[in-house]
């Protein structure tokens, strides 16, 4: 995750974002119109790249781990409802986050698991286009990641 690719990724996703959203919306700082619930990691949710979101949320490098089972479809039936489930055998898991690399805002969901809650969660996410779903698990204070590519295409013949 060294600097050059970040800036390239940054510009690329910015391009994708601008074609998706009116620039007017983006010019407005996120917090301006949003009432932020207590504890809600606003900064992390406003980041547009995987690296920035991870940095904002955890502030440490991500190391891949094969102890995380990330289930997501190969081809999404509908990009608006992508069933994703994460489970792991890593010990003392306190947090699980889910990201979609090419979404306008990369961080999709962030779950806090107090002691006594099992390290597994299932939910349904929206994906802007074909990209990776990334699961990040915080175990004993360190973060581990797994990724899976999900193909997202338009549905039907859309005459």
């Amino acid at each position: 995750m060294h600097a050059p690719t970040t800036t390239r990724r940054f510009t690329l996703s910015l391009l994708a974002t601008s074609c998706l959203a009116t620039t007017g919306l983006l010019a407005m700082p996120r917090a301006a119109f949003a009432f932020d619930a207590p504890g809600w990691p606003a900064a992390a949710f406003s980041k547009k790249t995987e690296a920035d979101a991870i940095a904002a949320l955890y502030g440490q490098k991500l190391t891949a781990s094969d102890k995380i089972r990330l289930e997501a479809p190969d081809i999404a039936e509908n990009g608006a409802v992508v069933p994703v489930s994460v489970s792991t055998t890593l010990p003392n898991v306190t947090r699980i986050s889910l990201m979609a690399s090419h979404n306008p805002f990369t961080l999709a969901a962030d779950y806090v698991l107090p002691a006594g809650t099992e390290p597994a969660v299932a939910c349904r996410l929206k994906m802007a286009k074909t990209s990776d779903v990334i699961a990040i698990v915080e175990s004993n204070g360190k973060i581990y990641g797994a990724r899976k590519s999900v193909k997202v295409t338009l549905g039907g013949c859309g005459g």
């Binding site: 081809i75 999404a76 039936e77 509908n78 990009g79 997202v152 295409t153 338009l154 549905g155 039907g156 013949c157 859309g158």
Partner: peptide, 8 residues
């Protein structure tokens, strides 16, 4: 039937 139409 059963064939794909883009995502469907």
């Amino acid at each position: 039937a059963g064939h794909r139409l883009r995502g469907d």
